[in-house]
Lab assay of single mutants.
Amino acid sequence: DLPPEQWSHTTVRNALKDLLKDMNQSSLAKECPLSQSMISSIVNSTYYANVSAAKCQEFGRWYKHFKKTK
């Protein structure tokens, strides 16, 4: 379990794929700090720029909290 400071584009993509087993992209976009188009691009590997470090950390913090509450 990585601390949010160490999250990267790959970590975010893997976490998104895991979350999308249980929910669809639009529900996920309402919950998490990423937009639906960004989620779609990341999981389909069409998001060519890497997600910014700040966004990765924000998502990492959100993901840890989300997993605790589920």
Score class of each variant (00 low, 15 high):
1 D>L: 06
1 D>M: 06
3 P>H: 12
3 P>S: 14
3 P>L: 12
3 P>A: 10
3 P>K: 12
4 P>H: 15
6 Q>V: 12
6 Q>H: 03
7 W>S: 01
7 W>M: 03
7 W>V: 02
8 S>Q: 15
8 S>C: 15
10 T>A: 11
11 T>S: 07
11 T>Y: 04
13 R>L: 06
14 N>M: 12
14 N>W: 13
15 A>P: 01
16 L>Q: 02
16 L>M: 12
16 L>H: 00
18 D>T: 10
18 D>V: 11
19 L>K: 00
19 L>M: 07
19 L>W: 00
20 L>F: 02
20 L>P: 00
20 L>Q: 03
21 K>P: 03
22 D>W: 10
22 D>V: 11
22 D>H: 13
22 D>S: 15
23 M>L: 05
23 M>Q: 10
24 N>A: 09
24 N>K: 10
24 N>D: 15
24 N>E: 15
24 N>S: 09
24 N>L: 04
25 Q>T: 12
26 S>C: 12
26 S>V: 13
26 S>R: 11
27 S>F: 08
27 S>E: 13
28 L>V: 07
28 L>D: 02
28 L>H: 05
28 L>S: 01
28 L>C: 02
29 A>K: 03
29 A>H: 04
29 A>F: 05
30 K>P: 07
30 K>F: 06
30 K>E: 14
30 K>H: 15
31 E>R: 13
32 C>G: 05
32 C>N: 00
33 P>M: 02
33 P>N: 12
33 P>W: 00
33 P>Y: 02
33 P>T: 02
34 L>Q: 01
34 L>V: 03
35 S>K: 09
36 Q>F: 11
36 Q>C: 13
36 Q>G: 15
36 Q>M: 13
37 S>Y: 06
37 S>P: 09
37 S>R: 11
38 M>L: 12
38 M>K: 11
39 I>N: 00
39 I>V: 08
39 I>L: 06
40 S>C: 11
40 S>R: 11
41 S>V: 04
41 S>G: 10
42 I>W: 04
42 I>Y: 09
42 I>P: 00
42 I>E: 01
43 V>S: 05
44 N>M: 11
44 N>V: 03
44 N>L: 02
45 S>D: 05
45 S>M: 08
45 S>K: 14
45 S>C: 14
46 T>G: 11
47 Y>P: 14
47 Y>H: 15
48 Y>T: 14
48 Y>P: 12
48 Y>A: 11
48 Y>I: 12
49 A>W: 08
49 A>F: 11
49 A>Q: 13
49 A>M: 10
49 A>L: 08
50 N>A: 06
50 N>G: 12
50 N>I: 02
50 N>H: 15
50 N>F: 03
52 S>E: 08
52 S>Y: 02
53 A>S: 06
53 A>D: 12
53 A>T: 09
54 A>Q: 09
54 A>E: 12
54 A>K: 08
54 A>V: 14
55 K>C: 12
55 K>S: 09
56 C>H: 04
56 C>A: 09
56 C>R: 08
57 Q>T: 12
57 Q>N: 10
58 E>K: 05
58 E>I: 04
59 F>R: 00
59 F>N: 02
59 F>K: 01
60 G>H: 05
60 G>Q: 05
60 G>T: 04
61 R>W: 06
61 R>P: 01
62 W>V: 03
62 W>S: 00
62 W>P: 00
63 Y>I: 03
64 K>V: 08
64 K>L: 13
64 K>T: 10
64 K>F: 10
64 K>W: 11
64 K>M: 14
65 H>P: 02
65 H>Y: 08
65 H>M: 13
66 F>Q: 07
66 F>P: 01
66 F>V: 09
67 K>P: 02
67 K>D: 08
67 K>L: 15
67 K>Y: 05
67 K>S: 10
68 K>D: 04
68 K>Q: 10
68 K>R: 12
68 K>G: 07
70 K>Q: 11
70 K>W: 13
70 K>L: 03
